[in-house]
Amino acid sequence: MSAHPENRAGLWVALASFVLWGLMPLYWHLLKVVPSLQIVAHRVIWSTLLVVAWLLWKQGRGWLRAALAQPRAAWMLALSGALIGFNWSLYIWAVNAGHVVESSLGYFINPLLNVVLGVAFLHERLRRAQWIAVALATAGVIWLTVQFGQPPWIAICLALSFALYGLLRKLVAIDAVGGLGVESVYLFLPALAVMVWGEAQGAGGFLPLGGAPGWGLGVDLLLVFGGALTALPLIGFAFAVRRVPLSVVGLLQYIAPTLQFLTGVFVFHEAFDRDRLIGFVFIWIGLAIFAIDGALRARRTGVTPVAAASEA
Rank of each mutant, 00 (worst) to 15 (best):
R65G: 11
R127C: 04
V51Q: 05
L113S: 11
V34W: 12
A135I: 10
P190C: 04
A295H: 10
L49F: 15
F148S: 02
Q38E: 15
P233A: 03
V248A: 04
L217S: 02
A298P: 00
D273Y: 00
F18G: 05
G198R: 06
A228L: 06
E183W: 06
S247K: 03
P151R: 02
I132Q: 08
I109K: 01
G226I: 01
P245T: 07
V196I: 14
L90S: 04
F266N: 05
A69E: 15
I142W: 12
A3L: 07
L209Y: 05
S80R: 09
A155C: 03
Y91I: 08
P5D: 02
G205Q: 03
A288Q: 08
W75G: 03
F86R: 00
F280R: 05
A78K: 02
Q147D: 15
L167W: 10
S184C: 02
Q147I: 00
G81Y: 01
L11P: 02
I39N: 07
L160A: 11
P190A: 03
W54P: 06
G118I: 13
I142C: 13
T145Q: 05
R169P: 00
G118E: 13
G250H: 06
T48Y: 07
A309T: 04
L30D: 12
V34D: 09
A82H: 11
L20Y: 02
P5A: 13
V116G: 14
V33K: 15
Q38A: 08
A3W: 01
L259K: 12
Q201R: 14
I278F: 04
Y186G: 12
E102L: 03
W284N: 02
Y165P: 06
Q253P: 12
A271Y: 09
A312S: 15
V100K: 10
L37G: 06
M1C: 04
Y27G: 08
I174N: 05
L105A: 03
W93I: 06
V19E: 07
L55E: 08
F206W: 09
H29N: 13
A298I: 08
A137H: 01
S161N: 00
L56M: 15
Q38G: 12
I174G: 12
A67H: 09
L37W: 12
G236S: 02
V281K: 06
A137M: 07
A14F: 01
V303L: 15
A240W: 03
V248D: 01
F237G: 00
L217Y: 05
W63S: 14
F239D: 10
L246A: 06
L83P: 09
A73Y: 11
F18I: 13
V219H: 01
T138K: 05
V194E: 00
R127Y: 05
Q260N: 13
S103L: 00
L77C: 07
A203E: 13
F206I: 08
Y165M: 06
L50M: 14
L64Q: 11
L105I: 07
W57S: 13
M1D: 00
A14E: 05
L49P: 10
A120E: 10
A66I: 04
T263N: 03
Q130H: 11
V19G: 13
A74P: 05
V267Q: 07
W57M: 12
F268S: 07
W46S: 04
A271S: 11
V303A: 06
F268P: 10
